[in-house]
Write a protein that binds this DNA or RNA. Structure first.
Length: 263
DNA sequence: ATGGTAGCGTAGCTA
């Protein structure tokens, strides 16, 4: 089973790139974030034609939006809301073998890393806290579960181009890293990507649009994650982060797809 | 320290 996560930054604008990604990598399940469209205008037919007949989508106008697209049937689909908002950031579904898949888009939190001065950062921290509490209180801890998405935090030193220079930059501040790692601990999540890629090796899934030359400067961050419950660890086969997709023509997303093969 | 780009939707918010 191949699962992929990709912050697509408008699924309507980039449906062609999604189709290219499908042709080249043939994932069984694709989780998208920042689809940026209401369900009525989501390109459901184009994706069904590619074999993804089972779709659980949740979108709103202009912002956010998540989707689980699957070649395999999806059951027990649902939505989670955090921080008292219905802002289309978290959906889940169950695969035929009973594995639960969560597709999540954590708020970015804007620039100022101070929850008092910046309500968007407060929202991000609250979102992380509520996720942590919810997963901690879950009773079915042994249920095979995969959580993927743009978590908007690069937790490890080598998940950013410069740990030192990024300590004060939202996405890598100590408070966010602590909260993301607490969320990980709360459900014993295994970082399926770092399971394969050594912690001292740089790995990014996002490069800013604002760089003159994203590839030359290579100031990336690993914001997109695939986590699995410990009972799936033995089934992890391999992972791939498609760095070259950041250069796809004509209009790449600022995030690239992250893939894990399981079972 | 600042400003740099992108998408939606057509101003300004969000990233």
């Amino acid at each position: 089973m191949r699962i992929a996560t990709w912050n697509i930054n408008s699924v309507r604008l980039r449906i062609g790139l999604v189709e290219q990604f499908i042709d080249e990598h043939k994932p069984d399940v694709i989780c998208l974030q920042e689809t940026k469209t209401v369900n009525e205008t989501f390109p459901a037919a184009a994706l069904a034609a590619k074999g993804y007949k089972h779709q659980h989508i949740l979108g709103m106008k202009s912002y956010n939006g998540v989707a689980i697209l699957s070649r395999l049937p999806l059951a027990k689909t649902g939505v989670k809301n955090w921080h008292n908002r219905e802002d289309c950031r978290h959906i889940f579904a169950e695969l035929p073998d009973g594995t639960e898949v969560h597709c999540c888009y954590v708020p970015a939190g804007r620039h100022i890393p101070d929850p008092k001065a910046n309500p968007k950062f407060a929202h991000k921290l609250g979102f992380l806290d509520e996720q942590t509490a919810w997963w901690k209180s879950r009773k079915d801890k042994s249920k095979a579960t995969i959580l993927v998405g743009d978590l908007n935090v690069a937790p490890l030193e080598h998940d950013v181009w410069s740990h030192k220079q990024m300590l004060g930059v939202v996405s890598h501040t100590p408070i966010e890293v602590e909260k993301l790692l607490n969320w990980q601990k709360a459900h014993n999540w295994v970082d399926a990507v770092r399971h394969f890629v050594p912690h001292d090796q740089k790995l990014y899934s996002w490069w800013s649009y604002r760089a003159n030359d994203w590839e030359a400067s290579d100031r990336g961050r690993r914001l997109d994650h695939i986590w699995v419950t410990p009972n799936l660890t033995a089934s992890l086969k391999k992972t791939k982060t498609l760095k070259h997709a950041r250069g796809w023509d004509p209009k790449p997303s600022d995030h690239v797809p992250v893939i894990v093969d399981i079972g």
